[in-house]
Structures are given as C-alpha cells and as structure tokens.
Amino acid sequence: MATDAALRRLLRLHRTEIAVAVDSAFPLLHALADHDVVPEDKFQETLHLKEKEGCPQAFHALLSWLLTQDSTAILDFWRVLFKDYNLERYGRLQPILDSFPKDVDLSQPRKGRKPPAVPKALVPPPRLPTKRKASEEARAAAPAALTPRGTASPGSQLKAKPPKKPESSAEQQRLPLGNGIQTMSASVQRAVAMSSGDVPGARGAVEGILIQQVFESGGSKKCIQVGGEFYTPSKFEDSGSGKNKARSSSGPKPLVRAKGAQGAAPGGGEARLGQQGSVPAPLALPSDPQLHQKNEDECAVCRDGGELICCDGCPRAFHLACLSPPLREIPSGTWRCSSCLQATVQEVQPRAEEPRPQEPPVETPLPPGLRSAGEEVRGPPGEPLAGMDTTLVYKHLPAPPSAAPLPGLDSSALHPLLCVGPEGQQNLAPGARCGVCGDGTDVLRCTHCAAAFHWRCHFPAGTSRPGTGLRCRSCSGDVTPAPVEGVLAPSPARLAPGPAKDDTASHEPALH
C-alpha cells in the first residue's frame, strides 16, 4: 500500500513536468492505449483535445483523470512512461527518471493478473537440437547421386540401376557391380574402391570401400567397409609401409569409374585409389579445392560414357583410347591431361624469361682521411668538412668512354686558381681547403699541381719545410723540376691526363 501511495503522490508531483515534456501524442498516448491504461473513449478524447488546445494541455488533463483511477493503472502508467522508446522521444523525461526514488519498484506484477504457477513436473524439458533432418536429407541425396545420367557406350558392359529405396527402410541396399565389389548404403556420403591386398588381414578377392557413415545421432565417422563389417581407420595404420605414394595433400579420389555407378572395369580391371599401398590413418579432407572437384561422367573428346580416367587438374575425364597418344593402361600417381600440362608450361616460361635485376654498384670503404676530388669540390665554400675520421664509401662506377685530351690552356685561363699578391707571391683563392683534413686555415699551394695542403698533414714525420718551391706529398717525388717562383700557373702540358701512381689516385688537379 505504501508503494501505491508513493506512486500516486509522484504522479501528482510530476504531472506538469510530464505534460510539458510530452510534445507529441505518439508514441506515449498510443502505448498507453495498447497496454489498456487508457480506454478507447479517453484516447479519442485526448486526441481531440490535443487538436484543440495543444499537446501539453491534453496530457495534463489525461494525467488528472489518471489520478482518479486505481493503483494498478497508475503503476502501469509509470512502466509505459519509462520505456526506452519514450525516453528517446521525450528527452525531458530523463530528469524525472533520475529523480525517481530508488525504493519504488516498478517491476512488480499487476494485482489480480498474476499467472498461475505451473508445477515443475509438468514443464517439459527442453529438446536438444538434433541433426536428424540433415541425416534424412543426406539419405535422400545419396540415391540421386547414384542414378545414371545416360546410357553407357556399346563397348562398356557395366550397366546398373540402383533400385529405389524407401527412406523408412534401415537395411542396406547393395548393387552387384562384379568382381566382388559392393556399394555402400544410402547413408554413405562418398565411396572409393580399395584393393584388398592393401588391407592387412583381408582374405580372398574381397575389396573394401572407404566410406563416411552418417549415424542417426547426427555425428559422422569415417571407416572402411569390408564385406558386411565396418573398420575404423586406426586398424589399417601401417607405419612400416615404404610404398606409400601419396598425392599432394591428398584424400582418396576415384580416378576410374563407370558411368552411372562406381566400380571396377569389366574384364577384371581393378579400380585404383589416388594413392597406392596401405590406407593412410588420417582421412581428413584435403585443403586443395581441386581434389574436391567432381569430374564429368562423359569423355571430353567423344562425349560418351564408359570407363573413364579423370584428370587431377580439371573436371574433365577421358577414354584411354581417346587420348593423344592413347594409353594402354592407367598410369600410377597423379595424372593430368594435356591442357593442364600446357597451362603449367605456359606459367613457367614467362618466369624464366623475366630479366634479372641489375646488381647495385659495389661499394668499397675508403680509409679515414681520404676523399675523392669530387667530394672536395662539392663541399660548401668557406666551411670545414665535419666528421673527417668517419669511413667514407667510394662507389665503383662504370668507366666513362675515352675522351680526347684536354686542349692547351693559356696562363690567363688559370687566373682564378691563384691570386698574385703585391710581391708576386701566389695566394690561395677563397674557399681553398686541405685535401686531407678539410680545413682551409693557413693552407699552402703546391707549386707543381696548384693543390691546397697543410705541410703537417702531408709530411707528418716532421720534415723541414723548404723556403721556396713548396710541393705536396703527391708531387714531391716527381722528377720534373719545380717552376720558378712567381709564375702564375704550371705549363698547360702538365694538365694533360697521364698515368698516375697508386698513392696519388685520389689527388687529381682540382679547380677552386
């Protein structure tokens, strides 16, 4: 009773807030009518008042009428009001819900409408889902798969039609296919003929059939049928067999079959498995989609049935006599038709004709302190090069084509190399640097090759510096006499390219 009084008091307290929050009759008014909170006449009256005075006034009048009803109607109103779709449509209802007392429970059932309790003993237990329907569909599909699609060729003596089998029958139906081979029951999904010589313990000319048996419980189990008994694959494991010639990621696949039913060829011909030897223990289905393919039931050349050999690369099948050149017997292992072999060759040939990528240039590290003349020119003028003790990398590039010797140069053309002071002394051009340390401070000019250098860098042994005729380390061993002091540049003949010694390969005349 306390809860009923509290709900009535809360409705009177929030009546105006609810009326202002509800700006549309749908969905709240319609939901109240659906849950029998508002009768039909009051529903029509509220809609009429909404058209006349507006939605807030109409709902305020409806809530005032609701306060005169019993506690069950008020409880049902609060339940409908706080439904998710009403809270989404009328956003101003959320503060009312947040301020609702926590001790007021809106989930209690309506009085007088409590459903009768059902004894637990009368409640049926839930049924577990079964796979009976899938099993029945598999039974119905198996006879259809064994139905012949056409008439065999005159040369083929193997013609068999499976008798119709009602689904209610649980007995196995067997077809006489000759040579002791028996087909599987209607619940078998796949059958492959297997030679009895590969099964340990088999006697006589009995041949087993590799099947997948579907049981009534819905589970499946792969086994071997020899005669009327089934054997699990673990009985046929043979770890010492060295003649297993397995197909790549293979499961067994029928390579020879008669049109209309699988079996042995007439005249004692023995149908073979995809792999010879003992049956392997793992009978998992292969991951290669080509091995799941269903080959055609007629020859791809003459479009006739009979004894066919199936290609492992495509769905086509052929007569042995229709092949070019014809085959006398079934080859062992994987067999592919000429079209598949030709496609494989065409895929391999473009790969062989692809040009080989060019090898990157060989990189040879230079000892610290040495650099090529090109690196000396590329440096920024007026700045010493940083990191001189790091190992430089010199790339061996292809030799350029031989060019004509340089033409003779006048001494005026070499004027930018040297600057003559007032006393006739050779001065260095701006930006000249030593080729060893890279520093341009207090550098000297070689009178023979006009290269800038430090005496301490080229002659670290402490050799005394002569007063005139300074030469760098590369030119100090040259027998050519030094030019007379005061000459602007060496003779043009000295600039012609010539053979250089091994220790002077990195010091070429550089223009500054």
Rank of each mutant, 00 (worst) to 15 (best):
D34G: 04
T151S: 10
V188D: 07
D76H: 03
K259S: 09
F26V: 01
T151N: 09
F82W: 00
G204I: 02
R12S: 01
A265S: 10
P254E: 07
E237A: 11
L93K: 00
L29M: 01
L273D: 04
L75K: 06
A160H: 05
P116L: 11
G269A: 14
Q172T: 15
R272A: 06
P143W: 12
A258W: 11
G180A: 13
V37H: 03
S248C: 10
K42E: 00
G228C: 06
P176F: 15
Q94K: 13
L122T: 06
F100R: 00
P163G: 06
D76F: 01
A202I: 09
K50L: 04
P126K: 11
S187M: 04
L29T: 01
L62M: 05
L66H: 03
W65E: 02
L81R: 01
R113E: 09
L255S: 07
F236K: 02
P109W: 02
G91R: 13
S248V: 07
K222F: 00
R247G: 05
L11P: 04
P95C: 09
A21V: 03
A261K: 08
K164I: 06
L81S: 02
E51H: 02
G219W: 10
P252Q: 08
P109C: 06
V38D: 00
Q213G: 09
L106K: 04
L28D: 00
Q172V: 12
R15Q: 04
A193Q: 15
Y231D: 06
P166I: 13
D36E: 14
Q189R: 07
S24I: 02
V20L: 03
P126I: 02
F82L: 02
L11A: 00
T46N: 00
G228Q: 00
A261D: 06
E53C: 15
T130P: 14
L81P: 03
K133D: 02
P126H: 02
G251E: 14
L177N: 05
S135M: 01
R190Q: 13
A140S: 10
A73L: 05
G208V: 02
R12W: 01
V226F: 08
A138E: 11
F230D: 06
F215P: 06
E53T: 14
Q212L: 01
A152F: 15
G240N: 15
F43E: 00
L66F: 01
V188R: 05
C223T: 12
D36N: 11
A73T: 10
K161N: 08
A265Q: 04
E216V: 03
L106F: 08
L49C: 01
P39R: 02
K42I: 04
F215C: 04
I224R: 04
L47F: 05
E51W: 00
A25T: 05
S99E: 02
E229C: 02
L63I: 05
P252R: 05
S217N: 08
A61P: 00
A2E: 12
L122G: 14
R139G: 13
I181H: 00
L273C: 06
K164E: 08
G201D: 04
L29R: 04
E207Q: 06
P119S: 07
D84Y: 04
R174I: 03
R113P: 05
L93C: 01
S71M: 04
V104N: 00
L32V: 00
G155W: 15
P166V: 09
S156V: 12
D84H: 03
L29V: 03
L75P: 01
D84R: 07
V38R: 09
V226P: 11
G267T: 15
G251K: 11
R127H: 03
D4F: 04
E51R: 03
E171Q: 12
A21Q: 01
A170T: 07
P166G: 15
P162F: 14
A5W: 08
F43T: 01
